Simulated assay, not measured.
Amino acid sequence: MEQVSYRIMRGLVKGNKGLRFRITTPRPFGNGKKFIDEFDPGARAFPYLGRFGWRSYDVFSCHIQKLSRECSHIWVTGTCAASLAAIRRVKMPKVLSHHYHHFENSTSRLKWSGFYELLCRGLSAVTFPTAFTCDEALRIAPWLKKKAHVVPNGFDVFFQGEEERLKLQQLARQSLKLPQQAWIVMNAGWLVPRKRFDIFLRTVAEVKNRLPESYFVICGSGMLEAQLKRLAEDLGLGRSVRFTGWVDDLSLYYKASDVLLFNSDFDTLPCAPMEAASYGCLVVASLAYGGLAEFIDHEITGFLFDKHDTDLLASSILRLAHDGTLSRNFREAAVRRLTHDYSMENGLAFYKDFFGSAN
């Protein structure tokens, strides 16, 4: 969500040089601090002490009240209870960008019902990146209907045709020291249980057995990194897979790769498949629960499965490796979908209108 927010802010500022952002967060800044400084060098983070940050909440809330005197609108870019609680008494237009799915377990409905009732009644608008997630929210809190908006994440498209893609792929592989002649499969994200990088590794092990010249890249970090590295060794992938650690800018990896293999138990609308497609990288995905089908039409813009079937996933990757016509058709169809439904113009339209009175 952070990268999506940065793109929106950059697009809004580009179209309105007088627009300014004041940024604060109840949690310490993460990897995105350098992007935040681009918009607000005075941005302030708080330590989030105690359960739900209650020990640092008062000072954070006071800071919100202070910033509100300089601002005309409030934008909360994520489902942070501390942030939403801190703005309840502020009287100005307020929008929440909600990017998370709702139904994970038997307590999910109760949790989200309380969230919307206690923290969202005073909001002017709530945006969702997919109709899938918006529909979930309305099943929980039907009264949100007049406030709810489906706002697609916007992406720039960098793919400029197959000849240019192959030229950039060669240069990217040279820069990253990746094998030039390999069929490269990648994924990127947090190495956490729901992201199912274990499925990625088991799938690419099957690909390697059937396509020896293949190579694999995992960009990301997280609690499962050591465990996943051991699994890669156990699967015989030691020299055929690269763990890069966290990468702020994935563009070179998208250019260098042939396929993004994305696997997750639940995701609203993951950015990696769409970012990859914007560079002409093919997408094969398995998502047990989420809204990715709004971007991937199975066997039209990519391969999308609702079960983590490693044999099926591997066969799909190999099918693309051996069928240039199919790969070209998928690549071009995905770019058309991005251009038509997920352009930066579409992603910015709601926010331009909402913040319009700030001009």
Rank of each mutant, 00 (worst) to 15 (best):
L166C: 14
G238V: 11
G122N: 11
I87N: 09
M344D: 01
T310F: 05
G50S: 10
G189D: 02
L231Y: 10
I74C: 05
A288C: 13
T133S: 14
R239S: 14
G114F: 13
D249N: 11
F330H: 04
Y254Q: 00
G30R: 06
H73R: 09
F159E: 08
N209G: 07
P93K: 09
S68R: 00
F155L: 02
F305D: 05
E163I: 15
N329G: 10
L348C: 06
S257F: 09
L312A: 06
F35R: 07
G114D: 13
A333H: 07
T25H: 12
A188K: 09
A276K: 07
D248A: 05
F103K: 00
Q169A: 04
Y6N: 09
F132D: 06
R319T: 07
T25S: 14
D267L: 06
W190S: 09
N187W: 13
V283Y: 07
E332N: 07
I140L: 13
L313Y: 01
F39Q: 02
N329R: 15
A277W: 05
V90K: 11
R89S: 15
Q180K: 14
A141Q: 12
R337T: 11
C120D: 03
G161V: 13
W183I: 10
Y351K: 02
F200C: 08
R121P: 02
G42A: 01
G32V: 03
M223C: 12
F115M: 15
L211C: 10
V4G: 09
T301G: 04
G356F: 03
D297M: 09
Y342N: 13
S175L: 07
H98V: 11
Q174F: 06
L19Y: 02
A182F: 04
N359I: 08
K167T: 10
P193G: 02
L171W: 14
K307E: 11
K145G: 02
A232F: 05
L261D: 06
S61L: 06
L338N: 05
D58E: 09
L191R: 10
Q180I: 10
R7H: 09
R210V: 01
A182N: 13
M274G: 03
A358R: 04
H102Q: 05
G32I: 08
G290C: 01
F330Y: 02
E163L: 14
F159T: 09
P142G: 06
